[in-house]
Design a protein around this nucleic acid. Structure first.
Lengths: 226, 226
DNA sequence: CTTGTCGAATTGTTCAACGATCCTTACGTT
DNA sequence: AACGTAAGGATCGTTGAACAATTCGACAAG
């Protein structure tokens, strides 16, 4: 656990702006998202507060923030753990996606949002050509974030951001990212085509099938050990 | 003997559910929801920590929780204030409602959920008969919470809970609650009828009109002073 | 093998302190 | 009189230490 403190101290310079607790939360969020802290792992108050050079109280405020984002699991008197979503969680995440993305494809897209979708598709294709499946995953996430932004609602955007961060936790427990991400590069392009063509009902139907497929694939490849 | 363990594990969440900070958050949430703390009002750390008999640090953890729920507004070095939603916020809240409730009415309702809807409608009608417009508002909120629960997703339920709590802030700034709540008692019954009749498209259309009407009425009656 | 007990380790909460920041008020300059 | 500004007080932001409460593993007893 000592090299953890050493590694974290690299992030200390980032402590120059806004509230310390929020900056700590940003750092931890990035670390979790990048897989540096793995799902199920316990985050020691002492080790991390020492590593980042902040007090325990400040760190605890940051923990509360991330707990509310469902990235951390706060167990009373036992500490905080990087969340390890259950299969039931995955199913619920996909229920939410069906609602948010389904509503999105039925709306008339504006140019700005379409541009974001196109770029995400291109990025995914580029990354796939280089066998960079981590990159494909990231571009894929950007695609769906852009998709949901068609709803034109800051609150929905924020919900989707959280949802995708949570989903990233699931990806980190998967052993074979390629098998999961690869099929969706083409699907994204097809879905984009239907949206551009102004065929909302077709797009919605395609999306439903898309999400069913993704969920099945994901739950199948996902065996968390509680 | 193994199914005993499986059965008990359902009660696991109930174990980790009491920390002073969370209990403080519960209290403050209730107070805000009841209008005891009014939108725009500043909550002094010293006064409240003293009043509740908890330390400033613990209170601050509670503040963070409520801030994330958008009930409190945390301004750096200036303190926390009960959130006072802007007109733009109201518009966004209704955008989210259209998505969540729209998806709900298109789903096949199960008996359990229908029961909740019926009870909420009855409660609203009872309260209206007694000129209890506060009660009508509460029942109305229950109706829409039950409506959204048709989506059968814990995360969506939670989002809706937060959304309605935020909307309650708006109601507290309104001068004439009756004018706002009265028209929707009948509307709720009509909407329930369409759902029971198995007419999702009609119900969706009626709901859209419903929400348009409510939003217009609300924004019109709402002039927050920032 | 199960149960009871002890102790180390960690979290939950409080308290006091000090620097940083914001708001108000009063003051002096133009 | 209008304006910028400097001083003061109030409050927040953060820290460090302290102690109680709880968990967990180890070990002994039955």
């Amino acid at each position: 656990m000592d090299n953890v403190a050493a590694d974290l101290s690299q992030d200390r310079p980032r402590l120059g702006r806004s509230s310390t607790a929020e900056r700590v939360a940003d750092i931890l969020r990035d670390r979790i998202s990048a897989g540096f802290f793995q799902p199920g792992q316990r985050l020691s108050e002492e080790t991390i507060s020492e590593g980042l050079g902040v007090s325990r109280n400040t760190l605890r405020e940051a923990f509360r923030l991330l707990g509310h984002e469902r990235l951390l699991d706060h167990k009373l008197n036992r500490g905080v753990f990087v969340r390890l979503p259950s299969a039931e969680d995955v199913a619920d995440l996909y229920r939410v996606r069906r609602v948010l993305e389904g509503a999105a494809v039925r709306r008339k897209p504006d140019k700005q949002a379409l541009k974001g979708l196109k770029e995400a598709v291109l990025d995914a294709e580029r990354a796939a050509a280089q066998d960079d499946w981590q990159g494909v995953g990231t571009a894929n996430i950007r695609f769906h974030q852009a998709l949901v932004s068609l709803n034109d609602s800051p609150r929905i955007d924020e919900s989707m951001r959280q949802l995708l961060a949570e989903l990233r936790l699931v990806f980190h427990v998967m052993e074979n990212p390629r098998a999961f991400h690869e099929p969706f590069v083409d699907r994204n392009r097809t879905l984009l085509g239907l949206i551009e063509a102004g065929e909302p009902e077709q797009a919605a139907a395609y999306l439903d099938d898309y999400l069913d497929h993704a969920e099945r694939l994901l739950i199948h490849a996902y065996e968390p050990n509680r």
